[in-house]
Write a protein that binds this DNA or RNA. Sequence first.
DNA 1: GCTGGAATGTTGCCTACGCGACAATTGGAC
DNA 2: GTCCAATTGTCGCGTAGGCAACATTCCAGC
Lengths: 193, 193
Amino acid sequence: MPVNLNDPRVSRTRLLIMQAFTELVEEQKNVYSISVQDITARATINRATFYAHFEDKYAFLDCWISRKFQILLKEALPKGRITGTGSLRTVVQTVFDVLARFRQYMTHPGNSRFEPMFEIAMQKELYSLLLEWLNEEATVSPDKVETTALVASWGIFGAAVQWSRDPRNLTSETMVHRVLEVAAAALAPVLGE
Amino acid sequence: MPVNLNDPRVSRTRLLIMQAFTELVEEQKNVYSISVQDITARATINRATFYAHFEDKYAFLDCWISRKFQILLKEALPKGRITGTGSLRTVVQTVFDVLARFRQYMTHPGNSRFEPMFEIAMQKELYSLLLEWLNEEATVSPDKVETTALVASWGIFGAAVQWSRDPRNLTSETMVHRVLEVAAAALAPVLGE
DNA sequence: GCTGGAATGTTGCCTACGCGACAATTGGAC
DNA sequence: GTCCAATTGTCGCGTAGGCAACATTCCAGC
């Protein structure tokens, strides 16, 4: 449990772990079969050090997927956050894309137990992203803002999960379009529209 | 002064320093203007740690150029070392190539003071490479072998330096060919030919 | 020449990492 | 079911790296 997260060694170790796992995932596509030993060997750090940074494998996966989602969003969004209904579309599209992407990792037997983790991490991230945006634009009470962000994040996210599990011949574009309309309506009151 | 060179932290730190310097050299081509501060910042290690690994900047440069030369040779030679008069040609060619390459870094004012270091490091490396090979093939006394390796390494190397300073319209191929003939003659007695 | 700022080295204290050994849990094969 | 091997997670001790502060050397500009 490193104390100072600004210590260069700490940042470097975390970065090495993240990169190592990303490489391994891209190589073998099978999250389940990647052991802590594999990760730390690739990262050239000690296995004990891994546990000094993360409660356990699940806590790490949670952290990893969050960061990965954040990075993908940061790449997709101009300023790294939502700035208007226009960029909201980008976010929703990213959620759909990421879920479609991770779906393939989950097809291996044994991987399905990780699924909820990935999903929960994404929903949380989506929630804070929406909340940050709404708080800037808000014309109503904080409670109302938080609830709106919560409902919207779950709504968008849940729809994406549902679709990723069973696309029913619908393209992600179609779904994004439909979901966006509903989400916009839910957000409208808070945005003073 | 790290004690155990097999400690993963030590290997990693050295690797980071080497890579950082290689990157900086490729970016700004000017060895002279690269400070220890620059190297350690790029390598994400502390400046004090640098001095724990290397006596000073010169010792580091010496080490770096040796490694670089070794790596280039390892890439050029099939088994990473000399296996016969055929591969001797490869080595000589590499010496000429490397010197021609580093020549451009030395044109900047102030860099010329580093020149002898680069050259000495290369000669030493060439010497041990030749010695290793001759010791396997040797049919004469160890003294004779060492002297032959010494003279040959300086001969090959010196010719390359001379040429790199003033090519006199001669291609490296021409020079390699000529030098190789002389070197082969010098080595012949030890090789029992 | 002199002077000031930057780069080079040095030192002591604290923290993070490596390691080996250990117990606990998992999951597959029989 | 039982076993066995691999993986997970923990702990204590030794070592390497980070940091701040310092003295020294080196040039550039006056």
